[in-house]
Simulated assay, not measured.
Amino acid sequence: MPIDHKQPYDESNIFARILRGELPAKTVFESEHALAFHDISPAAAVHVLVIPKGAYVSWDDFSANASDAEIAGFVRAVGETARIVGAEPGGYRLLANTGKRAGQEVPHLHVHLFGGQPLGPMLAR
């Protein structure tokens, strides 16, 4: 169910639990500021999630409140993850849903990295 990205951070969300080691994840990359892991329900040949380690509900929250080091570390983690999974040479798509209208389902910023196949149009009609 889509969430309201203006609500306070929920420490019980699935990504917070993964970061605390309470739930397993198939890690692709980890740094001081980010964790990347395979999506449990992939929508493409390559489907990896990249999340900041800080408690940020959405891109809006992250861009307004994260430190410069967190922002740089997260953006670099997305690029490094694309290279690690081999998506970079053929091209890839990044998707970050923010709020109900976009269909955000987990109240922790996450970027979907899709690749490994032709991805079609930007938006489904």
Rank of each mutant, 00 (worst) to 15 (best):
V78K: 11
D10A: 01
M122N: 02
L123I: 13
N13E: 04
S31G: 09
D39R: 15
R101C: 07
G116C: 12
A77F: 06
T98Q: 15
A124Y: 12
N65D: 04
L109I: 02
G115P: 02
H108M: 04
E105K: 03
P42L: 14
R101N: 09
G103C: 04
G21N: 09
G21R: 11
L123T: 12
V111K: 01
A43M: 14
A102P: 05
P52I: 01
S12I: 00
R76C: 06
A16V: 01
F74N: 01
H38Y: 13
D61G: 02
R20C: 11
G116N: 13
N13W: 05
G91V: 11
S58Y: 06
G73F: 00
F74V: 04
E88P: 00
R101W: 09
F62Q: 03
V78L: 12
P2G: 10
V78G: 01
Y9F: 14
P52A: 03
R20E: 13
K53L: 07
V75Q: 10
P121F: 13
V111C: 08
I3H: 02
H112Y: 11
L109Q: 01
L119Q: 13
V75H: 10
R17C: 03
I51S: 05
H33I: 00
P118S: 12
K53P: 10
A34Q: 03
D60R: 14
L123C: 01
G21P: 07
G99S: 01
S12G: 04
R76T: 08
H47L: 13
H112C: 11
P89L: 08
S58R: 07
V57W: 03
V78H: 09
G103Q: 03
V50Q: 07
Y9W: 04
L19T: 04
R125F: 15
P107R: 02
A36F: 02
L23C: 06
I40K: 12
P107C: 01
A69R: 06
E105C: 00
S67W: 05
G86P: 03
G116Y: 14
A16G: 05
G79Q: 06
S58Q: 03
H112M: 13
A36W: 09
D60I: 13
A96S: 14
A82P: 02
A34C: 08
H47Q: 09
G79A: 08
L109Y: 01
P2M: 04
P42V: 15
H5V: 07
E11D: 02
L119N: 09
E32N: 12
D68L: 07
S67A: 04
